[in-house]
Design a protein around this nucleic acid. Sequence first.
DNA 1: TATTGTTATACTCTATAACTATA
DNA 2: TATAGTTATAGAGTATAACAATA
Lengths: 160, 160
Amino acid sequence: MKTDHVDIILAQWKTQRPDLDCSPMGIVGRLGRAKQLMTVRLDDVFKQYDLSNIEFDILASLRRVGEPVTPTELYQTLMLSSGAMSTRVDGLVKRGYVERQASETDRRSCLVTLTPLGVSLIDKVVEAHVENEREMLSALNEDEQGQLAALLKKWLVANE
Amino acid sequence: MKTDHVDIILAQWKTQRPDLDCSPMGIVGRLGRAKQLMTVRLDDVFKQYDLSNIEFDILASLRRVGEPVTPTELYQTLMLSSGAMSTRVDGLVKRGYVERQASETDRRSCLVTLTPLGVSLIDKVVEAHVENEREMLSALNEDEQGQLAALLKKWLVANE
DNA sequence: TATTGTTATACTCTATAACTATA
DNA sequence: TATAGTTATAGAGTATAACAATA
C-alpha cells in the first residue's frame, strides 16, 4: 500500500517520540487533511458563481428548507454570530439573491427569503456542487463510500 | 439507527429537489461537520497552553523532524505565505519557544530551532493533544477506527 | 425585562508586494 | 537575475457590545 502524508508524520513521531502512541493522529490527521483538500476544490465551484462558502450555505439552507427563515435561525444553524449573519445577508440582498420580509407576527423580526434570481442561482450551484463532490469521491468505490459515510455518521451521532 | 444532522439535510433536499442525488453530501458533509466539531475540541487543549492551531503545527513540525528547519520549508509544508510564517515565528520567538539561527552556508537564510523551553512545551502539549484525540474517537471501536483510517488514507493517496 | 436584528468597533489572521541582503 | 526572509499595507472575516424597536 502506498503512503500518504500522514504516514510520514507518524513515522517522524516514531523516531523522536517512540514512547508515544500516535495512532489517533492517523484518523484525526487524515480527516483534517482530507477536509482541507476537499475545501479547496469545493471553493473552486463557489468562486465560479462569486460566492463564499458561507454564502453558499445560507442560500442552500433557504433552498432546502423550502420556506423563509429568520436571521436568528440562520446564524444558530450555521454557527455564526448575529452580527456576522447580518453582514452576510446584506451582501446577498445587494446582489439580489435574497430579500428581508417583515414578519407579520413579530415586528422586531424578519424573514430572509430567496428571490427568483436566488432560487435559480442556488439550483445551478447545488447541481455543480454535488457533481463536484461526486467526482471528488471517485477514488472510492460505492461500497467504500457507504462504509465511510456510516463510520462518520456513527461518530457524529455520538458526538454532535 | 439514529439520525445525525446530515440526515436531516439530506431529507430536506429530498423534499425540495427529489431529482437531485445528494448522496455525495452524505460523505463530504459529514466529513466537514466531524472536522468542525473536532477542531473545537482540539483547540481546547491548544488554548490551555496559549497556542493557536498553527503555532502548535509549527512547534510539532520542528519537534518531530528532530532538527532545525528553514522558514521556507515551514511555510511550504504548512501551506502558509512567507509573510504569515515570519509573523508566527516572531510570536514564538517572543515567548522563548524557538530561536532563529543564522545559516552557516547561506547568509540569506536561517534555521528555526526549538529552545529547551520549546521542547518541553511541545512535548507536554503533544501528549495532551494525542490523549484528547484518543478520547474524541472513543465512540468508534478499534476495528472501526482502523477502517476509517484506511478509507481516508485510500482517498488521500489518490488525491493529495 | 428580555429578545430580535442592525450597526459600530476593534481584533485576528492573512496574502501581497516592496524591500534588503545574499547567491 | 534569482532567492531567502522580513516588513508594511490592506483586505477579509469575525466577535463583541452598544443600540433601537418591540415583545
